[in-house]
């Protein structure tokens, strides 16, 4: 859909922006102060002594403490409630308007690289200037179709607020301006950045094994070491024999639908509706609930065979779901 709707901007439209300055350079409001450094390293938890201890810093060949390099961008920020003067002269304004008109109305920051070329020390004034480095051709991504915009900020340091500074670092900053993919098609995998996350399972000592199992592509169910009874949901002890000793076994992932619901309302933004959720009799003899997000509600019935599938929901979380088994009726 988006290829027809959003053909993207041409090189003729984009090339004039490359190399343009994003407005006048901006100077830090104050010279670097040791108290600012200490506040920052306390908040970040950086314990490197060269930011607070002259002797430690001199042991590295420097002449005094230095500002943490990662504070590069901090010094010349406008501050809370501050406004950037650059808006009036910033060519990005014109570029973003072009992109908006072309349908690329959403924005996500994709990456930020910093390069450290020299030290800043207490007393230095920091001056920042920014240039548009490049605007990419139109690209299709998991988020949707759009253009990447890369800018480069340069930072100089000088003890004299009016003096020419020494280049101490650069920051390359990349944005993606895009037209979001339609919801409802394949949105379950959590690829939509503007979709709120799903309810996350509370993982504790009694159930962590299950979610370790799904990460390994297994549906693990607890089994009592003493009497062999399978149990789900998990429990620290066996209700059949009171043993606290247990291990886990991987289920085949095959079963039949014992019951199911089709959710219509209320609609939680994290899910697509109507949503089929099934209670499944696993063939090993325990029952398990999981959604059937790819299954049409007209195709579901009690007694139908299903198979488990897995989907990565978050970086550290894989969740199971069911699909109708091959060759099942209806």
């Amino acid at each position: 859909m988006s290829q027809d709707e959003h053909p993207g901007l041409t090189r003729e439209q984009l090339d004039p922006f490359a190399g343009k300055s994003c407005g006048p350079s901006r100077q830090s409001r104050d010279p670097i102060a040791p108290s600012d450094i200490r506040s920052w390293i306390d908040a970040i938890g950086d314990t490197n002594p060269i930011y607070v201890d002259d002797d430690a810093s001199m042991a590295t060949g420097r002449s005094s403490v230095i500002a943490p390099p990662a504070m590069l961008q901090v010094w010349s920020m406008a501050g809370l409630g501050g406004t950037s003067k650059s808006t009036t002269q910033d060519p990005r304004k014109e570029l973003f308007a072009l992109l908006d008109d072309a349908g690329f109305t959403s924005v996500v920051a994709t990456n930020c690289e910093q390069e450290y070329l020299g030290d800043a020390v207490p007393g230095d004034w920091i001056t920042t200037s920014e240039v548009i480095e490049s605007v990419s051709d139109v690209k299709d991504t998991g988020l949707g179709r759009g253009h990447f915009i890369t800018t480069v900020m340069s930072f100089t340091a000088s003890p004299d607020p009016l003096g020419d500074g020494e280049l101490i670092g650069r920051q390359r900053w990349r944005l993606f301006r895009f037209a979001p993919k339609n919801r409802g098609s394949g949105g379950q995998a959590g690829g939509d950045s503007d979709r709120p996350p799903r309810p996350r399972p509370a993982i504790n000592r009694d159930n962590a094994f299950f979610f370790e199992g799904t990460l390994a592509g297994e549906l693990r169910i607890q089994k009592c070491d003493s009497c062999g009874t399978l149990r789900h949901p998990p429990s620290p002890a066996c209700g059949a024999c009171q043993s606290f000793d247990w291990s886990t076994v991987a289920m085949s992932g095959r079963g039949t639908i014992h019951s199911f619901v089709v959710n219509h309302h209320p609609q939680v933004p994290a899910f697509d509706y109507p949503l089929v959720v099934a209670l499944v009799d696993l063939e090993e003899g325990v029952r398990f609930v999981a959604e059937m997000p790819d299954t049409d509600r007209e195709d579901v019935a009690i007694g139908l065979p299903v198979e488990v599938r897995y989907r990565k929901q978050e970086d550290d979380l894989v969740m199971p779901h069911f699909v109708l088994a091959e060759g099942s009726s209806q």
Partner: peptide
């Protein structure tokens, strides 16, 4: 609908349902 992940037994009980949309 929330993501209450404090690892109590009560919250863990919801782990089998709410992440699946019920």
């Amino acid at each position: 609908q929330d993501r209450g992940t404090e690892p109590s037994a009560e919250n863990a009980g919801y782990a089998w349902y709410t992440p699946h949309g019920i």
